[in-house]
């Protein structure tokens, strides 16, 4: 008996060492790089800003009070959340059918199509914004085309519509790829079974594929929402100076006003709003379908 127990225990000890060796470095790096900065932001957000000395060490809630009592800042937060929710809904609406088609495609061009979806990601969001700028700008394509048709131009630049369009186009590749990989793991024979039992395509999709694809779709939606809450370049370039979202506001407080305490508070408010709303989105998914 003793001889049998010993190797087993030895094995479990070496397994634990192996697991630590495999997971230790990454966990250490991520924990330190993530927790230390966020804890510091929390501390700084309780400090006071002074125009001469910049930051006075103290413990006060005034940065948070300033945010939550000023309609301007609350408006910025509301705009940010509205833009993020709208673009997430649109991304899922457009992305799901495309992802489904890609996942179920047997075409020999599939590889090339996937490549085409990945490619824009490499180009980067800032550079891709230029395309929308030519379309929307004053004297740009849309403006000129509409003016040519009915004599009056169309100003889309610096509107919420332009910002949402920009964010949707930037996030769509991520959404499509995430949902596509989720659908890819669903056994096609399940769909074929539904079909052979007489389900029309609509029912096949909603009763069979959709519940199975829901966890992947939720991940895609959450990813898209977080990216949109965080958007800097799009509101900055397509929204113009008067369209305020949290990320540009935060950077402006930091770089132009040098108000680190308030910028820290903004960072934490943005972060907690994102986390809370992400957690709430889980409630939208019926319990039996949750991952």
């Amino acid at each position: 008996m003793v001889e049998e127990e010993h190797p087993a225990r030895l094995k479990s000890v070496s397994k634990r060492t192996a697991a630590t060796g495999f997971l230790g470095p990454a966990t250490l790096v991520v924990t330190v790089m993530l927790a230390a900065p966020l804890l510091l932001l929390l501390r700084f957000s309780l400090n006071r800003f002074d125009i001469k000395e910049l930051m006075i060490e103290t413990v006060t809630a005034e940065n948070y009070l300033r945010f939550f009592t000023d309609p301007f800042y609350l408006g910025v937060l509301r705009t940010t959340v509205l833009v993020a929710v709208t673009s997430t809904v649109l991304c899922l609406l457009f992305g799901l059918p495309l992802a489904y088609r890609l996942a179920r495609s047997q075409s020999r061009w599939k590889s090339l199509c996937m490549l085409a979806i990945v490619l824009p990601l490499f180009v980067g969001s800032t550079v891709r914004m230029v395309g929308w700028m030519i379309l929307f700008a004053h004297g740009g394509m849309l403006d000129s085309a509409v003016r040519w048709v009915n004599g009056v131009g169309l100003e889309v630049m610096y509107t919420p519509f332009a910002v949402v369009a920009g964010i949707v186009s930037i996030n769509l590749p991520y959404v499509v790829l995430t949902i596509q990989s989720a659908i890819e793991t669903i056994d096609i024979r399940i769909e074929e079974a539904a079909q052979s039992l007489g389900a029309p395509p609509g029912r096949q999709f909603w009763l069979v594929v959709w519940p199975l694809a829901l966890p992947g779709t939720a991940i895609a939606g959450i990813l898209c929402f977080i990216l949109a809450m965080n958007a800097y370049a799009t509101p900055y370039l397509l929204g113009g100076p008067r369209f305020q979202m949290m990320a540009p506001l935060l950077y402006w407080e930091f770089s132009t006003n040098n108000n680190w305490p308030f910028a820290s508070a903004l960072a934490l408010i943005l972060m907690s709003t994102t986390l809370v709303l992400t957690a709430c989105s889980n409630l939208l998914i019926p319990r039996r379908y949750r991952a």
Partner: peptide, 8 residues
């Protein structure tokens, strides 16, 4: 959000 980690 990256903008929060960046500042931190």
């Amino acid at each position: 959000p990256g903008i929060a980690i960046g500042l931190g």
